[in-house]
């Protein structure tokens, strides 16, 4: 799970003298870990409290009677609460997965073309793709709503998938182009001489080589789609079509004081992306270093 595997073991060991910066660094790291962890730990501790324990004053640091009730309620299809929540999770899974897969299908050939071909307008197109995320989501909300209405997609998951695609595409295209730039064209040539068609050469030789980049961009697209709130909130109005971030808000407005339930829901919806990211983060950092930073 280690992130950037750098080759600098020598420094830490050689440097015997514990100077100010070294000690200060450890203290800083400790504080940073507390800062990062406390909110998440508190989320979890709250989620295993009873509703009454959560709103005791002064707060119980550790729950006296830990309970998984909130989780049970959220994940059991036998009550309304759980049915909704599971459906929203399912919606999120579908929307994020579709976005991710389509994103890869669209980004890979585009990145490949930007890297390999020299067609007129290439640079202009490339940078116009890149600046997409400079525009705030809010300002596109209303026009996109109109577009979706024209396409008859309002209140469907496809409106979200189409929109989310554009969040991931710039990073995906950029990172993957970096990968393809670093793959010698001769490998493709060799494959074609060895009997592969253009497409086979791409599929059997180039694709596997850019796998870390594809995985990295896929994670990114998935996480962005999974977490998106604003468009999901605006485009979807049937309760059964909501994605989990919007569902979370719905819970909150309906059960204002049920903090354990809310924290449990937040916890559950964070688990997939956190696990996904931690398992695959080495690809992410590798892609960032290989495809992007090194140039």
């Amino acid at each position: 799970m280690s992130a950037v595997e750098s080759a600098r073991p020598a420094r830490a060991r050689k440097r015997r003298k514990r100077d100010f910066w070294s000690i200060g660094g450890w203290i800083f790291l400790a504080l940073l870990l507390i800062f990062s962890l406390v909110p998440m730990v508190w989320m979890f501790l709250t989620s295993i409290k009873t509703q009454f324990a959560a709103i005791e004053y002064p707060p119980q640091w550790l729950p006296k009677h830990p309970t998984l009730d909130s989780y049970r309620r959220l994940l059991s299809p036998s009550n309304d609460f759980g049915r909704d929540f599971l459906r929203w999770l399912g919606n999120s899974v579908w929307v994020s997965t579709a976005t991710t897969i389509l994103g890869v299908i669209i980004a890979v050939p585009a990145a490949y073309a930007f890297s390999r071909f020299r067609f007129p307008g290439r640079n202009g197109l490339f940078y116009s793709v890149l600046v997409r995320n400079m525009f705030p989501a809010v300002v596109f909300l209303m026009p996109l709503f109109v577009v979706m209405r024209t396409l008859d997609l309002v209140n469907t998951h496809w409106s979200l998938i189409l929109t989310y695609l554009t969040f991931g595409l710039p990073l995906s295209i950029w990172l993957l182009k970096g990968f393809y730039d670093n793959i010698p064209i001769e490998l493709e040539y060799a494959a074609r001489i060895d009997g592969a068609s253009r497409f086979q050469a791409f599929l059997r030789i180039i694709m596997p080589l850019s796998a870390p980049g594809i995985i990295a961009t896929a994670i990114y697209s998935f996480i962005v789609a999974w977490n998106e709130y604003l468009y999901a909130y605006t485009f979807i109005n049937s309760r059964e079509l909501l994605t989990s971030p919007v569902g979370l808000r719905t819970f909150f407005t309906e059960f204002v004081t049920n903090w354990p339930g809310l924290m449990a829901a937040a916890f559950i919806m964070s688990v997939p992306v956190v696990v996904l990211f931690l398992v695959l983060q080495k690809y992410f950092v590798k892609a960032l270093t290989e495809g992007a930073v090194k140039s």
Binding site: S270, V274, Q281
Partner: peptide, 19 residues
């Protein structure tokens, strides 16, 4: 440690906001 420090970035902004 790196993994832990990255978690806040990964979780949903809605979840983070409620936390």
């Amino acid at each position: 440690v790196r993994g832990i420090l990255l978690i806040p970035w990964v979780i949903s902004a809605v979840a983070a906001a409620y936390i």
